[in-house]
Amino acid sequence: MITGSRKLVLPGDLVSTNPRTAGYGTFVENGKVYAKIMGLMDKTENMVRIIPLKGRYIPSPGDLVIGIVREVVSNGWNVDINSPYSAFLPTSEKPESRARKVNDVLDMDDAIVAKVVAIDPKMKVTLTMRDKVCRPIRFGRIVAINPTRVPRVIGKKGSMIKLLKNELGVQIIVGQNGLIWLSGDRKKVDIVEEAIYIIEKEAHTEGLTDRITEFIKKRKEGIKDE
């Protein structure tokens, strides 16, 4: 992997002349590859992609998301997933909903961890809760960040999230839509929340992991002193 500087590009900037290398955030016209969004150019020999810095969450199948139930209907729930598109969770995709009234299982304003199973061409999003990590959220705290920063919070192969979990013993579930569920000791959750905001603000800067380690160490000492 190449280390070092990544150039900031704007929509319409030429990023490659080989259409076969076109990756995320680019478009091809007349055999040339241009950036279509503002972001950082990540260019390797056989791929060029743009790492977005801003933008809304656009769901894609397989994403783990945190949503809030906005409407209860006879055959399922309409869920707000912090995106331009609202999602639908059918009763058939929620185990234990047999033989119970729909709003006894999940009610308005309940938060849930769910997975995106399908998106049709009209961008109708279907969710499922048939997965070990999926659950209704009855306690803890939900933190919202810019969805484009989610990969930074997770870190390379989950390194950042592991760091937070190991250092503080807090339960964390990161939704791809920029909502993060935290649960555990209140003071420790406070630290994690602050750390997440730092990651969001300073994403894409050098030595972020080290600075977060440092920050946690300092704050942990603060708790002991009290």
Binding site: G4, R6, K7, L8, L53, T205, E206
Partner: peptide, 17 residues
């Protein structure tokens, strides 16, 4: 216009890998 965007996001040009 480019300069204005660079001014706001230019600091993010370096990313660790």
């Amino acid at each position: 216009q480019r300069e204005a965007i660079m001014k706001k996001y230019g600091a993010m040009e370096i990313e660790e890998e």
